[in-house]
Design a protein around this nucleic acid. Structure first.
Lengths: 217, 217, 217, 217
DNA sequence: GATGAATGAGACTTCATTCAT
DNA sequence: GATGAATGAAGTCTCATTCAT
């Protein structure tokens, strides 16, 4: 992950805030260690050592350890939430309304799997730390509220018209979908990452289970 | 929760190890604070203060902070995993093989909801800390392996014969069920505990979604 | 050592202060552990456990940890210093003035070796702790001043008359003798206790070295 | 001692590891207090106060209290053992084989007395703590094995040829010499440092006692 | 901008001693 | 007399943060 990720980080910020190379090294090290040991069990001095910078350098760029965490989480959440319905994926899913629900789901799941594969440490941090930091809850909540919910509700309406989903509240349907996608991905990448996974087949199964669950009886 | 829970704790141990009142106060305080702030952000001195004991008293009963956590988690996991298929619930579900899958699921979900309602802090601790403590992973893994998996596999076989589930691997089916039950419960009690929930209806929806998802197409 | 020593202790005190069995167990345990780990590194709770008594029991008999140490050291020093010129040894050495210096030394060294063999832990405690406890210094100083010095000076006068010692101050001669006896015994029992020692021969060598050193040139 | 010693420390390390002034203050304070009260009875907070640094500063330079002790002991043992037969003393003693044994001894004793005078706290620490720390035993053993023993054995062979020592094992002769030198020095500087000592005369006496003891009868 | 020595509050833990039972 | 739960002061050590260089 590292090499690609550090390039990403550098480019992404080059546009606006000129992320220096040292700053990127700090971010990388922090992501790695926060993911592996958790925020509280990771000391700033460890991060400094792993990033090959002085302890003080961290605080020159990030006013506190908490801000360092948020500097990781904020863009991370954006990358997690926004692209769901943006960029190339948007065109693949939402603009082709005629597409069938199952192919949409398939594309969606595969796309998020790719994201998790490329950003496993980030996802771990999110899942591990969300319970302890209200700021993360807010960021995630805001992202969901702003980028995800409106589009999904739209999508669900379309599906209802096509009579491929039960007549249940948006919240329930959404929860069912999210829950199953997340449940699969967490099991796949966090709980049993070392099992022999037949991803193609497994995705098919998940899609089938969701589709059949959603379908009006 | 407190009053009921402290009584439970005291009774449960009265039988074997004579949990003193002070020891129980320590456990209660620790459960509360670990759930609210997390293990690492909770100091033993805070726990002592909350339990109205001297800090040293904690260490007379629990050799280390980690052991205190495990003293909470170990019996908690047992209460979480074992009763699933034991005691009164066992008779309600597994001994009545003729029972339909949906009524089984309904009973199961309601039973676990009750448990979570009565043990919300414990469940929070489990979910929050599992990522950081291998001991918890092991305890949970062992409990699942010993008490849950064998019975569930049995159950799935029965269901297959009754042709009410798809022909998918046990792991996939089990993950689908667990994922949906857990997804609902986490959403219900942890993510949006303050929403207006119509539990009866919501359980019905979840059961329907699962049943339909499982059913062979 | 244990069995014999505990009997000794019990008898010795039976005469005056009625040492109970529990008290003796505490003393034994304390001696063992103070010798092995040192006074400061030994906790009263460890002693209690090793003596199979409750922690409080120690403090019923000995008002403080320091007093427990002194309860070991005081009689120990007496046994170390007093018998040097008392009891059976006195008759063997000092009453037989005609005896040659070398046979006196030989007897003395062998007698003290026996004592050390029987009381190794006690001797260790004395050597290890004397630097840290003024009370021990005082006890040892008093014992030396009262029991040892007068008699030794007497002896040295006799030796001078027999022209078997150099004409040097008592302090110098005494230091030479003590130093060599102690040097041998410490080497023999504390520094290299596991070497193959030919005690008979080694004692002979020490005696020869001392005698020749003392003899007027 | 302090002023001279701190200068020594600073210079000694300036060459290689740049011992900071604060680091030196910590060492000085620790040496002083370890010598006076012993390792276990000295707290790191006392050392910090005596050195006028924050307690945390100690642990920035020495990872643990034990390492602080060893940082004192290690170079101390080297200074104790190595120079015995090195530098100017070497030329005075060993390279002049024709020299008489007694003048060698005299030089040796005076040289080591000087060392002890300059390093009394260090010597106290060594004697007091060796019983409790295996690391010190090892350091001292290694120093003896590497620097002292080979040369002494050499010397003893020369002496045997000159027929000035008894035909006894190296170990016995060495123990006799060490024992008497150490016995004198310990008495002189540790047991009765406040007595009126006529050092010149006393050294003469010790040398005579040793020489006569060693001489073949 | 970068450094890393220094800080001091606070973490977990130990332990001699007390005291109600 | 004996117990052992309870205490709280003190111990070692960690760590986020500051600041002079």
């Amino acid at each position: 992950m590292d090499e690609r990720y550090i390039q990403q980080l550098l480019q992404q910020h080059d546009d606006d805030k000129k992320l220096t190379e040292k700053q990127a090294r700090i971010l990388i090290a922090a992501i790695e260690m926060f993911a592996k040991k958790g925020y509280f069990a990771t000391s700033t001095s460890e991060i400094a050592k792993a990033a090959s910078v002085a302890e003080g350098t961290i605080f020159r760029h990030y006013p506190s350890k908490k801000e360092l965490l948020l500097a990781i989480v904020k863009p991370g959440v954006m990358k997690l939430a926004f692209p769901i319905f943006a960029s190339d994926m948007a065109s693949k899913i939402f603009d082709q309304e005629f597409q069938s629900l199952d192919s949409m789901l398939r594309t969606f799941i595969k796309n998020r799997m790719e994201f998790v594969e490329d950003n496993l440490p980030l996802v771990k941090i999110l899942l591990q730390e969300i319970a302890f930091h209200d700021e993360i809850k807010e960021i995630l909540g805001a992202a969901a509220h702003t980028y995800v919910l409106p589009r999904v509700k739209n999508l669900l309406d379309v599906c209802r018209k096509q009579n491929v989903v039960k007549d249940l509240p948006d919240e329930t349907l959404l929860r069912f979908i999210i829950t199953n996608v997340l449940g699969f991905i967490v099991t796949r990448y966090l709980v049993f990452p070392d099992r022999d996974w037949n991803d193609e087949q497994e995705v098919e199964n998940v899609v089938k289970l969701i589709i059949d669950g959603l379908r009006p009886s």
